[in-house]
Computed example of a mutant assay.
Amino acid sequence: MTTHPVHPGARSIRTTPEGLMWEPSERWVRGRKGDVTVVDSRHPVLVWEPHLPVPQYAFPHADVRTDLLRPAKNPPTGKHTGSQVFYDLDADGEVRENAAWRFPADDLAGHIAFEWFLRTDTGLDHWYEEDEEIFIHPRDPHKRVDALPSSRHVRVEIDGQVVADTRDPVLLFETSLPTRYYLPRADVRLDLFDATDHSTGCPYKGTAEYWSWRGEGDVPPNILWSYPEPLPAVAVVQGRLAFFNEVVDITLDGERLERPETPFSRMLRKR
């Protein structure tokens, strides 16, 4: 096991031979399936898998309702960094397959991790850090999300057609992701897009609604989004519109930006 300093006064992130990174968390975390509390822990650990950009929680056995877990009938292969021990969850009148698992690392022996229902249609329905409900995945304590109003000049084009032009953007800086430009609706040609029923959730920003380009060309769907009711930390982006930099052309203060390659690039190509 090796350790990596995070910052003065912080606990260190530990790395296992399997490539997992983990560190203890001081947050009180609870997970529920329907009306049943399955996890109630004041000693969770955050775990980062090599192939995932976001962390997940694992919990001491004593903090888990292990009486609700059964050895998985159809355990998956090649999932969760070498894990071979999976559990089905039998709670609240329903069985959810492969809802929980154990990591193979000695460091994490005695801990159980759970899927998050909104990500995988299995696992637990509701999660809480202290008394605040959280969604999609745990918040990463080493990640920042800053939304800053700006007067920079942002122009967006699709296949050479200008679809947005503003000097009143909000720039959203999120660790490990490209800057996103949230634009006033009045400065976006929203008449060139169709609203869709697609939505996504983010533990830092809230729930987003989407629009697709109605023009021709090889443009993926759902490339434009907005947060109608963002979380308080990024309230300044409320109602504004943002594009995936990965598939549109953005010019910032007269300089054409390169399209970034991110995990979203692969996701957009698969649509």
Rank of each mutant, 00 (worst) to 15 (best):
P8E: 13
P8I: 03
A10W: 15
I13Q: 12
R14P: 00
T15D: 06
T16L: 04
G19P: 08
M21D: 14
S25A: 14
E26F: 12
E26S: 15
V29C: 05
R32A: 07
K33S: 14
D35Y: 11
T37S: 11
V38H: 06
D40V: 06
S41W: 11
P44D: 08
V45N: 04
L46T: 05
L46F: 08
V47T: 11
V54L: 12
P55C: 11
P60Y: 04
P60Q: 05
H61E: 10
H61S: 02
R65K: 00
L68A: 03
R70V: 00
R70D: 02
P71N: 01
K73W: 03
K79L: 12
K79T: 00
G82D: 03
V85G: 00
D92Y: 02
A105F: 08
A105E: 08
L108E: 01
A109N: 07
I112T: 11
W116R: 07
L118P: 00
T120C: 05
D125H: 12
E129W: 03
E133A: 13
P138C: 04
D140W: 08
H142E: 14
H142K: 10
S150W: 08
R155P: 00
I158V: 14
D159M: 03
G160R: 04
V162R: 13
A164P: 03
T166H: 06
F173H: 12
R180H: 09
Y181C: 10
Y182E: 07
R185N: 12
L190A: 12
D194Y: 07
D194R: 15
A195D: 06
T200I: 08
T200Y: 11
C202A: 06
A208N: 09
A208H: 07
E209M: 08
G215T: 06
G217C: 06
I223G: 04
S226L: 10
P228N: 09
Q238N: 12
N245V: 01
I250W: 02
T251R: 11
D253L: 06
E258Q: 09
R259P: 02
M267D: 12
L268R: 08
L268W: 10
R269H: 11
